[in-house]
Simulated assay, not measured.
Amino acid sequence: MKEKILIVEDDLALSAGLCFELQTDHYITMAAYNCRQAVQVMESDRFDLVILDVNLPDGSGMELCRIIREKYETPVVFLTACDMEQDILAGFDLGAEDYITKPFNIQILRRKLEVVLRRNQKQEPAKNENGFSDGYLKIDFEALAAVKNGEQLVITPNEYKILKILTANAGNVVTRQLLLEKLWDSAENYIDEHTLTVNMTRLRNKIEDPDHKYIKTIYGMGYVFTGVNL
């Protein structure tokens, strides 16, 4: 998956140049020209890295960095003309991964961004036969407990069965027929096509939201548990 980089820079020419250079390295880039735009963009999209200037038209990049670090795990790299020692130290104190001063060498910048992105690569979500967790959604099949973003979920036994089958086969298509066979319990409580569809819809409504999708429908076949934060 291509990494997505947000560039917060009010110099339009420099911003366009950075976007072009990074796109040639196969990154996806987006530009914001002030603090307000950056906050709005980050609220509606997910980024793997933020390149941030200190002097912005409507505020300080330092304050914006503090906001980003409080709300997101996205790494921040300062790219700025502010080269005073106290500025550099302040940037690192706020949690920046690196502090690069202008003028800069584009090849060195590229290499530094590679290092930051590699260092901050998210590990695959932890999952096993007894549970699943990606930090946002946590499922314990032994305790029949599920938590989404710190909130306890009420999930039915059949929904847990569906989740366990899907997570055990994460990344692979689980056919509707297989689910129907697995959901036929020892008491022969029959689960039909309609009931399966209803259970799947309710389960999705409980564990998913606009920013977190876990179950993908493969029309005409079945479902895939992606277990991926979008």
Rank of each mutant, 00 (worst) to 15 (best):
K161L: 11
E142C: 10
P125Q: 06
T226P: 08
A146N: 02
Y190F: 13
K164C: 01
D209W: 09
K216M: 10
S133D: 13
S186E: 11
D209F: 10
D211K: 05
K122A: 12
T201M: 02
T167V: 13
D185G: 03
N172K: 13
T167N: 03
G171P: 06
P210R: 15
S186Q: 06
N172M: 13
I215Y: 04
I215H: 04
I191E: 04
G131T: 01
Y219K: 08
H194F: 10
L203P: 00
V198A: 09
T226Y: 13
V198Q: 10
N169P: 07
F225T: 14
F141C: 07
A143E: 09
I162T: 03
K206M: 12
T167L: 03
I191H: 02
A146R: 09
I191C: 15
V174N: 01
D209P: 07
L166R: 00
G220K: 10
R204H: 04
I207W: 00
P210T: 11
G227T: 10
S186V: 07
V154C: 15
D209Q: 07
L166W: 00
N172G: 05
L180M: 05
S186I: 03
N158P: 11
H194I: 06
G171N: 07
H212P: 04
A146F: 02
Q177S: 14
T167G: 01
G171V: 08
I155N: 00
N158A: 15
L166V: 01
K182R: 03
V174Y: 08
F225Y: 14
A145N: 05
N199H: 14
L180F: 00
L179D: 02
K148D: 08
A146Y: 01
T197G: 06
I139E: 13
H194W: 01
N128P: 00
L203M: 04
G131F: 03
G131L: 00
K213I: 06
E188I: 10
L179W: 03
A126W: 10
E193K: 12
E142M: 12
Q123V: 10
G135Y: 03
I215C: 08
Q152M: 11
E129I: 05
T175N: 00
V147R: 10
R176S: 08
V224G: 04
K164T: 01
Q152R: 11
N169V: 02
N172E: 03
L178C: 02
R204M: 13
K216D: 10
D211R: 06
A146D: 01
K148F: 15
W184I: 11
M200L: 06
Q123H: 08
K182V: 03
E124L: 15
N199V: 02
K148Y: 14
E129M: 09
I218Y: 07
E151Q: 14
R176N: 12
N128R: 01
E129C: 11
K216I: 12
L153T: 05
T217N: 12
K127T: 06
Y190M: 05
Q123C: 11
Y223L: 07
E142D: 14
R176E: 10
I155T: 00
V154N: 15
P210W: 09
K216S: 07
L203F: 05
R202P: 02
S133A: 15
T175G: 00
V154E: 15
I215Q: 01
K127R: 15
G135Q: 09
L163P: 04
G227D: 11
Q152E: 14
P210E: 13
N169E: 09
R202S: 12
F132Y: 15
N169G: 02
K138R: 11
N189L: 05
L178G: 00
P210N: 14
N128I: 04
A145G: 06
T201S: 05
H194L: 09
